[in-house]
Design a protein around this nucleic acid. Structure first.
Lengths: 206, 206
DNA sequence: ATAAATACTGAATATATATACAGTATAATA
DNA sequence: TATTATACTGTATATATATTCAGTATTTAT
């Protein structure tokens, strides 16, 4: 699932709202009316983009043949129990019992991607990314990381949450989202470095 | 709701099955194909009968304009299903069906306090409070507000999310958590002001 | 006994709708 | 620098689709 633009999101929301209101999908003209476009082709191109990115499917030659992919129509939701792990200054956030602060029940399709545990954030190094102290970051254990992903990384024995940026074959930069914190440059040949996982969502309890 | 005949039940079932399969309602021709009728008018008359008896509604002059009345969209609320409402520039974030973008299943004790709906945030006025664009704020409809609470407030027709601060008996200040935004001072004797609810949590999908 | 509802076929048609084509403009990417 | 993606307007058109009209037949109420 590729990135979605703001306008494409508006169109997607519009389809969902129209569906809730009427029970059937909108026409190109309906979307135009709703969002203020003056040409049906405006809606058409957005729909094609959304289809290409996998957010919707369009039945060709069919009026109102739009369906939102991943909509809750048939997918059975399974409730699961996810552990909450404290982000400790030293040591990996292992799933060992002694690190589990508590457990949270939530559907396994709760976030756009599957995830493995919640990490309780300490410090404000990702403040500008909207991640505050004691927030619970939904972490997916994976090594498939793209530039700009928010990753949970381990350097030697220290675990941090930062933006991921590959500088070269052997150099990675971990960027903080807070000007008071320094970025970390990692030379993979020298340092003991590992990606624990990446953030796929966030949960905050006031 | 009058009695339904066997054939009408077949047509009604056919519409529901088609909806589950494709995400949009069938045409007259689709129904004929599915049930073996040879004339679109066969479907038409059954649809009119179903409409007359109150099982469906038909939008005149509209392709696939069939909606099943009393279908999950409006009826029987499941305990753990919460609506997501877009933060619209004008107008209250009412729970009217047309404002509901989608629904999220989660345990009703998910946040520390009960809540009523998720509000999809627009803009960055609460950035420094870790509330970013498109974040889902869990809103509890209440008027029990303390200083420092994050409230969803309505001034005239505009809805915003801000910190709440009571300045005096008749004056309230709504504080943004972003230096680019101005605070709002409200004179309760002059302005049309209402508290829609307060934030009890936050959910972000990456 | 007669009207009204049900249950169809078959043909005709106005229009609702998807979709292609021709442009313009800007931002991002290679 | 050229190219691709995004984001539109505006016009045109083939066709998908609702909907009416003309029949036939059976069953159910009045």
């Amino acid at each position: 699932m590729k990135e979605i633009t703001t306008q494409q999101q508006r169109v997607l929301d519009c389809i969902q709202v129209y569906l809730n209101k009427t029970g059937f999908p909108p026409t190109r003209a309906d979307i135009c009316k709703e969002l203020g476009f003056k040409s049906p082709n405006s809606a058409e191109t957005h729909l094609r983009a959304l289809e290409k990115k996998g957010f919707i499917s369009i039945e060709s030659g069919t009026s109102r043949g739009i369906s939102i992919i991943g909509s809750s129509s048939s997918s059975a939701e399974i409730q699961d129990e996810y552990p909450v792990i404290g982000l400790v200054a030293a040591g990996s956030p292992t799933l060992a019992t002694e690190n589990i602060e508590n457990k949270i029940n939530c559907p396994n399709n709760f976030f756009d991607s599957q995830f493995d545990y919640f990490l309780k954030v300490k410090g404000l190094s990702m403040k500008d990314a909207g991640i505050m102290e004691d927030d619970l970051v939904a972490v997916k254990k994976t090594s498939e990381i793209k530039n700009g992903d928010i990753v949970i990384a381990r350097i030697d024995d220290e675990v941090t949450i930062k933006y991921f940026k590959r500088k070269s074959e052997k150099v990675i930069e971990l960027e903080a989202a807070n000007e008071d914190y320094k970025n970390i440059i990692i030379d993979l040949e020298v340092e003991d470095f590992a990606i624990e996982g990446k953030s796929v969502g966030l949960l905050r309890k006031n």
